[in-house]
Design a protein around this nucleic acid. Sequence first.
DNA 1: ACAATGGTCC
DNA 2: ACTCGGACCATTGTA
Length: 451
Amino acid sequence: MTRGAKGDDAFCRVGLEEAKDYSCEDVYGALALFEQQQPQLNELGLWKLFAEVEGPLVPVLARMERDGVLVDRDNLQELFVEFSDRLLALEQQIYQVAGKEFNINSSQQLADILFEELELPRGRKTKTGYSTDVKVLERLSSQHELPALILQYRNLAKLTSTYVKKLSSLAAKGKGRIHSSFNQCGTATGRLSSSKPNLQNIPIRTPEGKRIRSAFIAKEGCMLVAGDYSQIDLRVFAHYSRDQALIDAFTADQDVHRKTAAEIFRVAPGLVTSEMRRVAKTINFGIVYGMSSFGLASQLQVSRKEAQIFIDRYFDLYAGVKTFMEQIIEQAERDGFVTTLLGRRRPLPEIHSSNRTRREFAQRTAINTPIQGTAADIIKLAMLEVDRRLRVENFKGRMILQVHDELVLEVPEKEVEATSLLLNDAMENVMTLAVPLSVNLQVSRDLGVGK
DNA sequence: ACAATGGTCC
DNA sequence: ACTCGGACCATTGTA
């Protein structure tokens, strides 16, 4: 049933007759698959998940895809001109500093210049040579001006080609709305994915990135209402681990990164610096991913010993977390799979691998999948509830984006207040865990400023 | 067409 | 020897 890579737009070229046959074949195939797989879903205990979540979600996603999201074409065009100009200038500057012209986009050619001609210290090796990734270039920035220029160039080139250019061309046709595909199959954890274009990795970190975000707007007379779950992964983690300190922190609505920082640095919460909090935040995320002391050390740029101390103190504070990790790995070894709160299942055959790297990877996956997958379960339920309530209450607002822990709605100005309440309530109360779910709301004309 | 590298998001 | 979970995509360079 796979179409050719360039065949997805076939309906634009063929007549209705052929399109009809083609569509019916698709439907027939889907039905045949359904009849074959229904018993399997039953046996695996997945029927309920299919019938009550994934199935009902199909029309919701289909409508999101059809409606799309509006972008400001003029704004994008201006960004394209400005970024192209700046890239051209950077390019010339780079040639001058490097002493010759080369293809800046080629990591190979760049490596030649940096490590052969300029004789800068080499870093990590790749399969084909020496790495020129952001970590390496940042380290070299203090010794030579070229690496810093490359970083600037890469940053701008990435934004221009992947986002500005791509989004412009997609928005050029039709009403300026961009129609992504939200895929239900294809992730190992149960998350959605977005493609053609991917609207789940629109920039947000850098100032230039935020300007690209600003090009995503609400149509005339509407506002964008966004709700994002506050630290849903860690909250799910608290729920699963039943760790009392973590549960207490979220129940009291404490700043959990600050609390962690206070503990591992042995200072009063009031004396936690932003740097200490940053370290604690990295650890909190690392824990969810099953990070080792080695991984933590390389992430934080500290010694393994220091990293190990952080981890020891972490497990001191959150004793339940360690037990949970051990138990979920045991479970994976026993069953050969792990599950999410709604029974979504991920096989982990490599949990018994004799290859240590593979086995440990499977162990980290055993920890991460129930967390990430349960968070995905929760927001999928929220999407169904939001969609249902919008209809029941006859609101005109519609969901247009999902970004893993965030839902964005396009809402008529007059309904913003009521819809915001609806969104907040539906997201926070869609499921009851051992800790409350908390949602931050944002109302704006575009996706840029303040988010 | 495909692998490798690098980079964006949660 | 060990380098954090999940995605998608652009570009280069080789086949």
